[in-house]
Each structure stands twice: as structure tokens, then as C-alpha cells.
Design a protein around this nucleic acid. Sequence first.
DNA 1: CGCTTAGTTGAAGCGAATCAAAACTAGTGG
DNA 2: CCACTAGTTTTGATTCGCTTCAACTAAGCG
Lengths: 207, 207
Amino acid sequence: MNAIARRKSLDPGQPHVMEGDASHDFANVTSGVAKLVRGAEDGRRQIVGLLFPSDFIYGSLGKSEPAGAPHSIEAVSSLELCIFPRLKFEELLRDYPSLEFKLLSRTLDELQIAREWMVLLGRKTAEERVASFFLYVTQKMNNLGCQGQTNFDLPLGRADIADYIGLTLETVSRQISKLKKDGVVGFEGTKHVIYVDREELEKRAGF
Amino acid sequence: MNAIARRKSLDPGQPHVMEGDASHDFANVTSGVAKLVRGAEDGRRQIVGLLFPSDFIYGSLGKSEPAGAPHSIEAVSSLELCIFPRLKFEELLRDYPSLEFKLLSRTLDELQIAREWMVLLGRKTAEERVASFFLYVTQKMNNLGCQGQTNFDLPLGRADIADYIGLTLETVSRQISKLKKDGVVGFEGTKHVIYVDREELEKRAGF
DNA sequence: CGCTTAGTTGAAGCGAATCAAAACTAGTGG
DNA sequence: CCACTAGTTTTGATTCGCTTCAACTAAGCG
């Protein structure tokens, strides 16, 4: 597996793939966080997913003429990727069925997350969205760093959070201020989280 | 494949799976349309996906202790399913790699659609949402019935459309009225579409 | 036909967006 | 170490698009 892999490093903000690019290869995030972004000419943006270490980036599978990438992939923090050329990767899938099964299982998880987010974007209030976001991030952080550590940096700035949960950055800021005032989350500076009341967040996150 | 399949028929409105149900088997839609629904106690609902003939229903793959279903699956019109018991189906996947590959490919398509919908729910205006919905449905209908036929029944009523695109049914109704008035779509009754100006719809659908 | 459900239309209210400005952070170089 | 600048975050005032509430109309069905 390592034999066919190529490494790539990206600085914060740099794109790995641009919307519409003829695409491409598969990859694996080994360190850092990336965002999947869809943007309009008029400035509107929607983040459709975050990639954490161990997450996959899918090329266009089995398509003879790969379509343009549906969204850009950009580094949020310093990002390390492990890239697999498309054809080589598909060979690999054929040769190692357990790898393909794993990939299918992961993809179903991603689909589940996307649908969860559809509920958030379609039906939740501003407060519920922000609370849900905090729950999602703390869960991710715990899975990675393992264990109940409520002490980590938010992977996104206010503007990116807004684009992820379908609000404006002003509304996000106001809701975070409210959570701070109510003692539901604690901050050190603007990005570093030092305290989280998970139970209260769940109450405020809605369904 | 047919050897392990069981058939099931559902009337409009009937559930195949309820939210939270211990789940389950895999299935294939052979006829009709189904909706995937997530609902809150306070009445809010979000449809996170539609299933047309040939679409798959996923059970909990490879999980030793299947989690509760994240959303219910309900018949929209008369629905015919082909059901495969979970363990049998997983055997099948092991024995026929090409089936698994196909399934992976389909799942990636579903993920793409879900993310497209995240953009709609997070950033589009009411008019853009309704236009996008019409484009989506006409495309689906053409794929199924094949060829440029702009003559079909909407698979959903106003309330379900609203729950699919994250609006209220009143707003949906107003936007459809506007499209009719502007000659972008034509109706016979309230559900039967007899004319669609695809180009104009695309203009109004936003990004 | 009456009856029930689904869809349309109107008026008023509200939550989040927008517009605007101040406060805070972080980097840079004197 | 501090002043200076550019970018981010917070806070405030106002506006606007969609929701809500309400009444009416059309369509499907025993």
C-alpha cells in the first residue's frame, strides 16, 4: 500500500483540489483538517464536509471519464495527505476485498453524517445548529486524541463555522457568546476550548 | 440473488422502517417511490432522501450490534421492495466483488446527492430551492421513463416537498404559483406536470 | 353530493441577515 | 517591548424573507 502512495503537504488555506478540476486520485488524511467547499459566484459558500486524520478523499470511482470535482478541498490547518493514483487504487481494491469493504463501510458513515447535517441545515434554529456543531467537534476530537479531554482548538474560524452550519458569521458569534455567558462552553482566547457541558449542549442541539 | 430475496408491498404512507428500529435487512426498490424521514417530537420533519426504482436501502453494514435506524423509510406511492436478509447479503457481497464495487459506486453517488442538498438547504433562497427540486425530479423521471418526456406526476405533495427542501408548505405553494404564472412550469391539476422550461429552471436554481 | 384532505392566498410577526462600527488578536518591524 | 497594521471577532441597529396564523378554494372519494 505504501508502495504506490505519494505524500503531499499543504499550508492552511491552500487548496488540494479546486471545484470543477478534472479529478483524480484517492487520498488519505494523515494529519491536519481539510474542508470540502462549494461556492457560488456571488460569494455564498457552503462547507459540505470536514476531513480529519484517517478520513478518505474519493476520486471518481470507476468512471471512465471523470467528471469535474463537485467541490474544492482546502486545508484548514497544516495538512498532510497520502495520495494514491486512481488506477492503482482501483487495482488495490480489486486485490484486497477487505479494503473495499472497509471503504464501503466508511462511505456509508459519511452518508449518514451528511444526512444528519441535512436535518441541521433544513430544520434547526441558530442555537441548535451551533450546539450541534460543538457536539460534533468535541466528539471528533475525542475520537482522535482519545478520551474525555475537553481541551482542544476549534478546527474552524467563525466564518467557516458559519459556512458549515448555514448561518452568517455574526449569528454564529452571537450564539457562541450566549453559550459562553450561560456557562455551557468555556474558552481561552477565541479558538481554544477548555470546557464543555455535553449534557446541556445535547439539550440545546434539538433532535 | 433471487434465491435469498423476499418481496414486500406497501401502500402509500405506510412505513417500511421506523426511526430507531433495530435494523435490518438490505433492500431494493423495484417499483414506486419512498422517502427517508427524520422527525422531531415538536412536529418538525426533514426528508433526507428519496428512493426511486433500482435504488438501494442499506442495513447496518458489518456492525455486530446494529444501531437504531437513523430515519424512517415510508412509501410515498405504492411501493414494491425486494428484501435481502442482512447476513445473506453480506455473504453475497463477499462472493461477488463486482456487486460490492457497484454498491460502493452507488453509495458515492448518494453521498454526492446528499452534499448537493446540503448546499440547497444551507444557502439557497426559496425560489432557488423549488427550482432545484423541479430539476431534480424531472431528471429522475427522465432517467426512469427514459427520454425527454416532460409529462409526469410529482412524486410528493406540497407538505413533503416542503420537508424535503426545508421550507413551509405555504412558501412552497407560493413559489410554485410564481413558476406557473411565469410560464416556467405547466400543470394539469396539482400534481401532474405537463411542461418544464429546463433552461429557465436552471437559471432560477442558483448554483 | 356532502365530506375530508390538499392546496392556495392574504396579513402579521419574527428570527436571522445585513449594514455598520468597535474591540480584540496576531504578526511585523522599529 | 511597544507601536502599527491587517485580519478576526464581537456587538449594536435595522431590514427583510420566510414563517405563522387564518381563511378560503379546489380536488379526491365514499
